[in-house]
Structure formats: structure tokens, C-alpha cells
Amino acid sequence: MSKQYQFKLVLLGESAVGKSSLVLRFVKDQFDDYRESTIGAAFLTQTVTLDDQSTVKFEIWDTAGQERYKSLAPMYYRNANCAVVVYDITQTSSLEKARTWIRELQRQADPSIVIALCGNKTDLSARRQVSQEEARKYAEEEGLMWGETSAKTGEGVSEIFTAIAKKLPLTAPQASRAGSSARPAAGRAGVDLSQQSTPQAGGDQCNC
């Protein structure tokens, strides 16, 4: 019997590094050249099937990167099983901002949170300011997952989410009991959906 998991994932990072584009590529395999800045937080879901046929469903909160909304961010990363902190490889300052986010997560988020550092916009590598070595070294020091992506070409996108999907069931604490609530973010722990008891087949609601 294959397993089903459900995890809450939050995207953080400076404004205009491509968080929403990354999610759009991952969820819908699409790309818009001119995306509006996210003013708020979007909720999306995507399911990844792993080699052993188990499935991982991501509940994704794509948050606003603008500084003025920073105070609201904890509301979105609380109870998250993983955070993808995105920077733009053509902007050194965006990696600095990513470091700030990571420090905040390490200080305030749940200690078991899996953090992935993601350098976006590899299609613009001609203008690269952040070297792979520098980022990888930082990630290793902090114990983060790391990868580079291009939301525009799709390069590396499914790889980084699949890597997270593989890692999460191993690290996230299992819920002792699956919650009955359908609310996203309801449960802190990842949920192994296959452990839930089999509900009754349709009969009972159909006595019309």
C-alpha cells in the first residue's frame, strides 16, 4: 500500500526574486513574463508522486516579498513543514535578504522545519552575481537544502520540490492521528494520509 503525505510549504524571499513564478511553474507548468507583485498570500496545492508510488501533497503559501508586509509573514510560516527561501542569482542583495529570512526561521519557526535555499533566474546566468560556490557553502554551513532554478525555462524546478518531497517524510514528525479538519495549516505535523481508517463507501449520503 502506497503512502500519502500532506505538508505545508511556505515561500519566502525578497520582492521580485520569482517566488510566484516558481510556484506557477511547479503547479501549472506555466510562466508569465509580466507577473504582478504579490500583495498578500496565495494558497495553492500540488501533489508529487515519488518512485515508490507514495504521494506528497504540498499546501503552498506563496507570500508577499515586500518589506512592509514582513510583520504578517509569521502567520504564514507558522506550522509550516518546510520553507523555500528564494533569492535571485543576479542580485547579491537578495541573498542577503534570504539570509535574514533563514535566521528568522531558525529563531522563530518550528525547530523541525526543513529549509531549502533556492537561487532563481538561472536563465539570466550571464548577469550572475551570486556564485554557486558561495550559496552552496552557506547552505552547507546552515544545514539547508540548496538548488538553482529557472522558473522561466523550468530548469531545476521539479527537482527541488521532489527533493523536498523525498526528504520531508523522513524528517517531519508523523501525526499520531490524521486530523478530520480540511483546513490547510490545521495540523502542524505532516500527515500520513494513508494511515487514516477507511471511511464508509458512498452509501450513507445517498438515501435520497
Binding site: Q4, Q6, G179, A182, V191, L193, S194, S197, T198, A201
Partner: peptide, 13 residues
Amino acid sequence: GAEFVGSYQAPEP
């Protein structure tokens, strides 16, 4: 009835 594996997100049949 028997084969179905429920989840709290996937709706009941």
C-alpha cells in the same frame, strides 16, 4: 468499500 483508502483531503466517495 474495501479497497478504498481514504484521506482527509481527498473527498469521500
